[in-house]
Design a protein around this nucleic acid. Sequence first.
DNA 1: GCTGTGATCGCCT
DNA 2: GGCGATCACAGCA
Length: 204
Amino acid sequence: MHRHQNHLTQSFYERSAERVAKDLIGCLLERTLEDGTRLAGYIAETEAYVGPEDRASHAFGGHRSQRNESMWAPPGTVYVYFTYGMHHCLNVSCLRQDHPAAVLIRAVFPILGLKTMRTLRTKRPRKHALKDRHLCDGPGKLCQAFAIDRSLDGVNLLQSSQIAIRQGVAIKGGEIQCTPRIGIGTAGDWVGKPLRWVTRVDPR
DNA sequence: GCTGTGATCGCCT
DNA sequence: GGCGATCACAGCA
């Protein structure tokens, strides 16, 4: 195995989804495409899906299937799911193997490969040109911009040549807001829990 | 900036 | 058959 400098460590991911989600803010998401093109951005928004007790989680009640198997995988495993019939979303498993906890990466500030990202985000004709700040400002958008789909599901972030997360820029605690998660409709008590972390500080 | 709505399909009942 | 861990667009402020 090739260990890269600045890679987040295994122990970084061997923590609760809450801790991992908050600490991923400001880290660098990197992607290398088949043709060698490199894409990167600083993580700006995350959500924690804490475990089988979390009604909003795909693994609620211990539900385990082919779709969400990566949530149960060793910490640092990529979980990509397909939703709304057209979008992919990127997650990282955490805490421990056989416990379904994960962090959803919802947005990044793009810093490398913006031209390629814009092409990937414009497969259908658009009415309005895409501003840089809208390239990766949503979980489905960032998967489009980074060419992330189910083919990356199950890969290990510490070992993959296709995707990695590295130390990035330090964001002060005061610059990170914590709010309820987005798009959680019917999860009882879990709807309002503050499990989303977001910064408006753009380090670019 | 905000709010409402249609698109589109894998997964579950 | 119903519903998403969403997005683009229209209309409005």
